[in-house]
Deep mutational scan, measured.
Amino acid sequence: KELVLALYDYQEKSPREVTMKKGDILTLLNSTNKDWWKVEVNGRQGFVPAAYVKKL
């Protein structure tokens, strides 16, 4: 599985998104969309802005 690092805090704005804190390590589930990547964090799956994370 591929991991990404949260570069910034992000507060979810819809049920399809997830909240993350700067420094969190997230599991990358899908990065086919250039703007929104699907990740898993704390057992929850959802989208975060691709610009807010970096592949490890």
Results as ranks from 00 to 15, higher is better:
residue 25 I to T: 07
residue 15 P to K: 13
residue 46 G to F: 05
residue 54 K to V: 14
residue 1 K to C: 08
residue 39 V to P: 00
residue 27 T to H: 12
residue 6 A to Q: 01
residue 12 E to P: 14
residue 54 K to G: 11
residue 21 K to L: 09
residue 3 L to R: 10
residue 38 K to N: 07
residue 37 W to R: 02
residue 25 I to S: 03
residue 40 E to H: 06
residue 25 I to Y: 07
residue 51 A to S: 13
residue 36 W to Q: 03
residue 26 L to W: 02
residue 6 A to D: 00
residue 55 K to I: 13
residue 35 D to N: 13
residue 35 D to Q: 12
residue 42 N to S: 12
residue 53 V to L: 15
residue 40 E to P: 00
residue 3 L to D: 05
residue 16 R to C: 11
residue 42 N to M: 10
residue 56 L to T: 08
residue 50 A to Y: 02
residue 43 G to F: 06
residue 45 Q to H: 10
residue 44 R to C: 06
residue 30 N to F: 08
residue 53 V to W: 01
residue 3 L to I: 11
residue 38 K to Q: 15
residue 31 S to A: 15
residue 42 N to W: 08
residue 53 V to E: 00
residue 8 Y to S: 10
residue 8 Y to F: 11
residue 11 Q to A: 13
residue 38 K to T: 11
residue 35 D to I: 15
residue 20 M to P: 00
residue 51 A to E: 11
residue 3 L to T: 11
residue 27 T to P: 14
residue 40 E to V: 08
residue 18 V to L: 14
residue 21 K to R: 12
residue 7 L to A: 04
residue 22 K to Y: 05
residue 54 K to R: 15
residue 46 G to S: 02
residue 36 W to L: 03
residue 51 A to Y: 10
residue 44 R to I: 09
residue 26 L to H: 04
residue 15 P to H: 13
residue 38 K to P: 02
residue 25 I to L: 10
residue 43 G to V: 04
residue 51 A to P: 08
residue 10 Y to N: 01
residue 43 G to M: 06
residue 45 Q to N: 09
residue 40 E to G: 05
residue 36 W to R: 03
residue 9 D to C: 05
residue 9 D to Y: 05
residue 41 V to K: 15
residue 11 Q to R: 12
residue 9 D to E: 07
residue 46 G to I: 04
residue 41 V to N: 11
residue 46 G to Y: 03
residue 6 A to V: 14
residue 6 A to W: 02
residue 49 P to M: 03
residue 27 T to W: 13
residue 16 R to Y: 15
residue 30 N to L: 10
residue 13 K to R: 12
residue 15 P to G: 13
residue 15 P to S: 14
residue 12 E to V: 07
residue 3 L to P: 05
residue 23 G to L: 03
residue 30 N to I: 10
residue 5 L to D: 01
residue 46 G to C: 04
residue 24 D to C: 05
residue 5 L to N: 02
residue 45 Q to L: 09
residue 1 K to V: 14
residue 15 P to Y: 11
residue 51 A to Q: 12
residue 16 R to F: 14
residue 36 W to A: 02
residue 32 T to N: 14
residue 3 L to F: 15
residue 45 Q to D: 09
residue 14 S to V: 05
residue 53 V to Y: 01
residue 48 V to I: 09
residue 53 V to H: 00
residue 21 K to A: 09
residue 46 G to T: 02
residue 14 S to I: 05
residue 53 V to I: 10
residue 19 T to L: 03
residue 48 V to E: 00
residue 13 K to S: 13
residue 51 A to L: 12
residue 43 G to S: 07
residue 19 T to I: 03
residue 48 V to Q: 00
residue 37 W to E: 01
residue 21 K to G: 06
residue 46 G to A: 04
residue 27 T to E: 14
residue 38 K to R: 12
residue 39 V to M: 02
residue 42 N to P: 09
residue 24 D to T: 08
residue 54 K to L: 11
residue 15 P to N: 14
residue 23 G to W: 06
residue 43 G to Q: 07
residue 32 T to A: 11
residue 56 L to S: 04
residue 27 T to R: 15
residue 26 L to A: 11
residue 15 P to A: 12
residue 39 V to E: 00
residue 13 K to T: 15
residue 7 L to H: 04
residue 30 N to T: 09
residue 30 N to E: 15
residue 16 R to M: 13
residue 16 R to K: 13
residue 9 D to N: 09
residue 33 N to P: 05
residue 24 D to E: 13
residue 20 M to G: 00
residue 25 I to D: 01
residue 13 K to C: 09
residue 26 L to K: 00
residue 29 L to W: 06
residue 13 K to W: 04
residue 24 D to P: 00
residue 3 L to H: 10
residue 21 K to Q: 10
residue 49 P to F: 02
residue 35 D to P: 03
residue 30 N to M: 10
residue 24 D to F: 05
residue 54 K to H: 10
residue 20 M to S: 01
residue 39 V to R: 00
residue 18 V to I: 15
residue 29 L to E: 03
residue 21 K to H: 12
residue 52 Y to A: 11
residue 12 E to R: 14
residue 22 K to P: 03
residue 51 A to V: 10
residue 37 W to M: 04
residue 23 G to H: 06
residue 28 L to T: 01
residue 25 I to W: 05
residue 23 G to M: 03
residue 2 E to R: 11
residue 20 M to V: 12
residue 10 Y to I: 01
residue 8 Y to K: 14
residue 34 K to G: 10
residue 47 F to P: 01
residue 7 L to S: 03
residue 12 E to N: 08
residue 32 T to C: 10
residue 20 M to I: 14
residue 42 N to F: 09
residue 11 Q to E: 14
residue 48 V to S: 00
residue 44 R to V: 10
residue 28 L to P: 00
residue 42 N to D: 13
residue 22 K to R: 13
residue 44 R to K: 13
residue 56 L to E: 05
residue 18 V to Y: 04
residue 1 K to L: 15
residue 5 L to R: 08
residue 27 T to S: 10
residue 15 P to C: 08
residue 45 Q to M: 14
residue 47 F to D: 04
residue 9 D to H: 06
residue 41 V to P: 00
residue 21 K to M: 09
residue 39 V to F: 00
residue 10 Y to D: 00
residue 23 G to T: 02
residue 21 K to D: 04
residue 21 K to W: 10
residue 48 V to T: 02
residue 9 D to R: 03
residue 14 S to W: 07
residue 32 T to V: 11
residue 16 R to T: 13
residue 34 K to Y: 10
residue 31 S to E: 13
residue 17 E to F: 06
residue 5 L to P: 01
residue 10 Y to T: 01
residue 33 N to T: 07
residue 24 D to N: 07
residue 31 S to H: 10
residue 52 Y to V: 07
residue 17 E to N: 06
residue 14 S to M: 07
residue 11 Q to W: 13
residue 36 W to F: 06
residue 44 R to S: 07
residue 4 V to T: 03
residue 28 L to Q: 01
residue 31 S to G: 12
residue 46 G to P: 01
residue 42 N to I: 07
residue 39 V to L: 04
residue 41 V to W: 09
residue 7 L to W: 03
residue 3 L to Y: 15
residue 43 G to D: 09
residue 11 Q to H: 14
residue 39 V to G: 00
residue 55 K to N: 09
residue 31 S to R: 09
residue 43 G to H: 08
residue 30 N to H: 09
residue 31 S to F: 08
residue 50 A to V: 05
residue 10 Y to M: 01
residue 29 L to G: 01
residue 44 R to Y: 06
residue 4 V to E: 00
residue 21 K to C: 08
residue 3 L to A: 07
residue 2 E to Y: 11
residue 46 G to M: 05
residue 53 V to D: 00
residue 49 P to S: 02
residue 50 A to T: 05
residue 14 S to C: 07
residue 48 V to R: 01
residue 19 T to E: 04
residue 26 L to R: 01
residue 38 K to F: 15
residue 1 K to Q: 14
residue 45 Q to I: 12
residue 46 G to N: 01
residue 42 N to E: 10
residue 32 T to P: 04
residue 48 V to D: 00
residue 37 W to T: 03
residue 48 V to C: 04
residue 48 V to K: 00
residue 49 P to E: 01
residue 5 L to C: 08
residue 40 E to I: 07
residue 19 T to K: 04
residue 19 T to V: 03
residue 1 K to G: 14
residue 26 L to P: 02
residue 31 S to L: 05
residue 16 R to V: 15
residue 18 V to Q: 03
residue 53 V to T: 05
residue 22 K to Q: 12
residue 11 Q to N: 12
residue 34 K to N: 13
residue 9 D to T: 06
residue 5 L to G: 02
residue 54 K to C: 09
residue 17 E to I: 03
residue 7 L to K: 06
residue 33 N to C: 08
residue 41 V to R: 15
residue 47 F to C: 08
residue 47 F to T: 03
residue 4 V to I: 09
residue 25 I to F: 07
residue 22 K to V: 08
residue 53 V to G: 02
residue 22 K to L: 05
residue 28 L to I: 05
residue 49 P to C: 03
residue 42 N to G: 13
residue 54 K to D: 08
residue 28 L to A: 02
residue 46 G to D: 01
residue 20 M to E: 00
residue 45 Q to E: 13
residue 22 K to A: 12
residue 40 E to W: 07
residue 47 F to H: 06
residue 43 G to L: 06
residue 12 E to M: 12
residue 2 E to T: 13
residue 38 K to D: 05
residue 32 T to Q: 13
residue 7 L to I: 12
residue 5 L to M: 13
residue 16 R to Q: 12
residue 30 N to S: 14
residue 22 K to H: 05
residue 53 V to C: 08
residue 27 T to F: 14
residue 45 Q to C: 08
residue 15 P to W: 11
residue 35 D to F: 15
residue 37 W to N: 01
residue 4 V to H: 03
residue 48 V to F: 00
residue 28 L to V: 07
residue 12 E to C: 09
residue 29 L to Y: 04
residue 33 N to G: 12
residue 7 L to E: 04
residue 4 V to P: 00
residue 24 D to G: 04
residue 2 E to C: 08
residue 45 Q to G: 07
residue 12 E to L: 08
residue 17 E to P: 05
residue 25 I to G: 01
residue 6 A to E: 00
residue 27 T to L: 13
residue 54 K to Q: 15
residue 53 V to K: 00
residue 41 V to I: 15
residue 6 A to M: 02
residue 19 T to D: 04
residue 48 V to H: 00
residue 10 Y to H: 04
residue 15 P to E: 13
residue 13 K to V: 10
residue 8 Y to W: 11
residue 9 D to L: 02
